[in-house]
Design a protein around this nucleic acid. Structure first.
Lengths: 419, 419
DNA sequence: GCTATTAGTTTTGCCGCCGTACTTATTGGA
DNA sequence: TCCAATAAGTACGGCGGCAAAACTAATAGC
């Protein structure tokens, strides 16, 4: 038995009775999803695996083809008797999505088509802390415009949306950044600002960098788990939480703030003014102090610091190894909090934590195994990010694509040729 | 834009294409929900508030009446011009649900009808730790049988399901208790055992006590929030987490285990063997030691201890007040972890924490406000449980009822009179 | 008793899935 | 070469279910 009632829908108050277009929508999504995840699929395959009839699948496939989402490739000749199936695959070359990222060190853009093929990729070093928000947004809009041009370059294409990743607390409903410590931004209406600069014919959404990275990592897996935690570490430490297959957003969108969970009340003073926050134990500055003191205090790109740190680990100096072991233990303590509360299937380490993951995970796993209340049943694996520092932009572009997979009707049908 | 794709459904693999009965189901649920939450509602009211047409609502209402879920009461005479509406209200006198609870100190049962009217209520002191699981389940089954008889006593009624609350880690999929520390149970297949004893014509589900309490508290609110945390304190400390309107279950169902989050690594040794778990700070034994040392170490019902403790607080002795202040601070630290990670709208204190809530909340709120990373925007209210120690059984019976509200088609339609 | 107003039902139409029958394309054996 | 056998995909009728509009029903106010 499940929980809640018609819940969220009902609380939205008025409007929105369900009609059969909802059925169509769900089944279109179902077929599209089936095409995406199978390498070679025929209508008949989809019919058996989805429980829909062949006739219905035919009609759904025809509509998806009409909207440019899938296409027929050749016949499937596998030597079996009977009429060979006509295999379907993702089309979507004309359907594009743009992801943007604002980071304290750089601005980035990534444009893909429906199948995830990268069409544009830009990354521009930019010190957002020295520039004011207006200037930063001007630069970002300029990059976005270039990217949009390139996306539409190869013929008539449909830009489905733009998503922006920001390192801070974001109100995803309104697309406003409430507070971004590394940028020193407070209450900046990003979505609105970009709509002013780019026009409002394309939907623009804004979300937290950790949330989007979590989605990117989720979709990088062959069998995406329903419960995943993405833990990112740079200057600060944050988490993107996916539970029950969806992002956990909470009442105001302020979730995953694990950096300031107190783990050692007598520990060092944190930037937030309190003592012993997890960040003071596993944040990049802390690790540099512990494992490579000579690299600390340099005002360089965290990504470069992470690589230097990894180099140090590979060299295997005793100081570095002891430092990593210590940090790994604290990481395990932090992860154990997440595991005991959320019971994820996997914890993905991003940012610098991902870069040096091999040197942290053993100690972390030891600590985690010891601290898991539910015992081995709840102990999950801890893996390094597959996308590293590009996870956030990837998440941004993929969230746009995923929305199409959730509701294929967003893509307009091809116009009927007259006469 | 939303996250994930067709996600969960797709991962379930085969079967389940969506057809129009899904639409019917959703709209029946919508209408039923509307009737439940409005005091007086006519079909026309529902049509305007739901966006469905009057004709559709009429048809839906007729079906709900046919299934005995709602009924027409008189006309609505409010002096307005026009034909008066025929008001609808919940019927469901013939539809019943049974909640059971296994606690280390007692066994309980609670049977209600669809509208939540209590028909049976039993509570039997029982020391489950001294009895073995078989005996306990025999006793529980006996109570359940009595309750079922009483439920069906008043004419032909339909028992929609049985739910069991257990203080421990539960695999809700299979209805098996994996580990219940206070009962010293390991891997007991509760659902199966009850099906053997009661027959398997009624669906039986098993869930964690904190989860069910969280649902009970959620439904006790006039405007149920989408994100709520229920924090229970007796011997141990646990949480039931509701996010996005649904229970957060995690990969294996082991969520909300906040009792052993380390908050003071140099603190006292906990029952789990580690130091400074939250439980050692705000568990009932700890509080008794801090605020009323003379009450500690007594092997009595926690509920009585809680009341004695509250009495102590009302008397206002300085020792007690200082103790409560200290515990309140640690409670605030624990809650801050939940708030920074999950950003709930409200935290409900259950168990003894609810009993003495007024004496803990001020200090806890102070600590929380100071530790909320997102500032005041994320600070939530902390309230005392409305149901106290009966929340779990209530949750158990209500989860059965809620499932009907989610899918009214579970209730069979009235048989057509022949000829 | 007539009109305006609001509630609820009936009718018709359309959408979308299902079941069945049919067409198409292939293998393999006579 | 031709004819099963087999499987893929399509065409068509049927039915469930919602929408829109027309219609009937019940009330207040004049």
């Amino acid at each position: 038995m499940a929980e809640r009632g018609s819940g969220a829908a009902a609380r939205l108050g008025a409007s929105a009775g369900v009609d059969q277009t909802a059925v169509r929508r769900a089944n279109l999504a179902r077929v599209l999803d089936e095409v995406r995840r199978g390498e070679v699929v025929s209508r008949a395959d989809i019919a058996t695996s989805s429980g829909l009839t062949k006739a219905t699948v035919s009609s759904l496939a025809a509509e998806l083809i009409d909207r440019g989402l899938i296409r027929e490739t050749g016949l499937r000749r596998d030597g079996a008797v009977g009429r060979p199936g006509r295999s379907l695959e993702l089309d979507g070359g004309g359907i594009t999505a743009l992801g943007l990222e604002i980071n304290s060190q750089y601005l980035a853009a990534r444009g893909t088509d429906l199948a995830g093929r990268v069409i544009v990729e830009r990354r521009l070093g930019f010190d957002a802390m020295r520039a004011d928000p207006e200037t930063t947004l001007d630069r970002l809009a300029a990059i976005a415009r270039e990217a949009v041009t390139e996306l539409s370059g190869t013929g008539s294409s449909f830009l489905a949306g733009i998503a922006v990743a920001v390192p801070g607390l974001v109100d995803a409903e309104t697309g406003r950044v409430r507070y971004a410590p590394n940028l020193e931004w407070r209450s900046i209406p990003i979505a609105e600002a970009l709509r002013e600069r780019l026009g409002d014919d394309v939907p623009i959404v804004v979300d937290n960098e950790a949330n989007l990275s979590a989605l990117a990592e989720l979709h990088s897996m062959p069998q995406p788990p329903a419960d995943l935690v993405y833990l990112t570490g740079e200057a600060g430490v944050g988490a993107g939480l996916i539970t029950g297959g969806r992002l956990l957003r909470g009442a105001g969108g302020f979730t995953g703030e694990i950096g300031h969970v107190p783990v050692d009340l007598d520990g060092q003073v944190c930037g937030c003014g309190r003592r012993g926050c997890l960040e003071t134990k596993i944040g990049l500055p802390a690790v540099l102090r512990a494992a490579a003191p000579d690299l600390a205090d340099q005002d360089v790109d965290p990504q470069e610091q992470a690589h230097a740190l990894r180099q140090r680990a590979e060299d295997g100096g005793p100081e570095a190894m002891a430092g990593f072991d210590e940090v790994g233990r604290w990481l395990g303590i932090g992860v154990s909090v997440l595991v005991n509360l959320l019971n994820p299937e996997v914890v993905v380490l991003g940012g610098y934590l991902g870069t040096v993951a091999p040197y942290l995970v053993p100690a972390a796993m030891r600590e985690l195994r010891e601290r898991s209340v539910a015992g081995d049943a709840a102990v999950c694996r801890i893996t390094a990010s597959t996308y590293g520092f590009s996870a956030a932009v990837r998440g941004a572009s993929s969230i746009v694509i995923e929305e199409i997979f959730r509701d294929p009707l967003r893509i307009p049908a091809a116009e009927k040729a007259a006469g």
